[in-house]
Design a protein around this nucleic acid. Structure first.
Lengths: 127, 127
DNA sequence: CTGGATCCCCGGAGATACTG
DNA sequence: CAGTATCTCCGGGGATCCAG
């Protein structure tokens, strides 16, 4: 990632570049509002697709599946299918997912803390 | 925001809904990869437009100005213009901005910590 | 150097319909 | 219910040019 400056040890800096680009890729995937909201909603629990659809305000069917796939692919959520009929699919955060949730929580707290600041900053700016 | 459930005290829940929608709006603005990268690069210091352009790998002229405006509007960065010629414009994080940087940092740490997990998760998924 | 404005195009994202 | 596929459309975002 951006903070990977290790000039001296050029053991194999092709590897470093690879890790860097992978990191940026992950960043692009995950630093997105829907992913954050999904992670936040999942929290410690387990939710079904339709529950997520309801809880994550304003997300479309497509965006939800898309982001869930992405999160699953990156190993942040686990998807368990109950072979019943009608099917029941549940999503849970994995350990990496829960770890990330800590920082997402941080952002939620931050948002609430600075709502006022931001609102006034906006008013000042919009003139 | 999503976590604002205060059922009992309905002093004025129109206000609550307003705060909620504002929070979601802020979330949509800020939870975006470019904003995060800019905040990360600014860190404790001060950077000029062109420096940011170089440091934030792959960002276009347009995206940079756009995000800087957005961050300025929300009061996360301060923009100081030195009336020299050629002009010199510097960007710094405000206090809210620095506060948010903590969580962005958290995400960077997280990324490095789980690079391995994620890489293997991807390989398993892509089959 | 900073940053608006304009043009243009590709792909993100919604709506709909269909399978298991 | 969960998920994929197809079509469509609008706007995000790049490239370029101009101004202060």
């Amino acid at each position: 990632m951006v903070t990977t400056q290790l000039k001296g040890a050029s053991a194999d800096d092709a590897d470093l570049r690879r890790a860097d680009s992978l990191a940026r890729e992950i960043f692009s995937d995950v630093a997105n509002k829907w992913a954050f909201l999904i992670i936040e909603m999942l929290g410690e629990g387990t939710l079904r697709f339709s529950e997520l659809r309801n809880e994550v305000e304003g997300i479309s069917h497509k965006m939800l599946t898309q982001n869930l796939r992405m999160l699953e692919r990156n190993g942040l959520v686990e998807r368990t299918v109950h072979p019943t009929v009608p099917p029941r699919v549940e999503y849970t955060l994995t350990e990496p997912g829960r770890a990330l949730r800590a920082t997402v929580d941080g952002m939620c707290v931050w948002t609430h803390r600075y709502l006022g600041h931001i609102e006034t900053a906006r008013r000042r700016f919009d003139t």
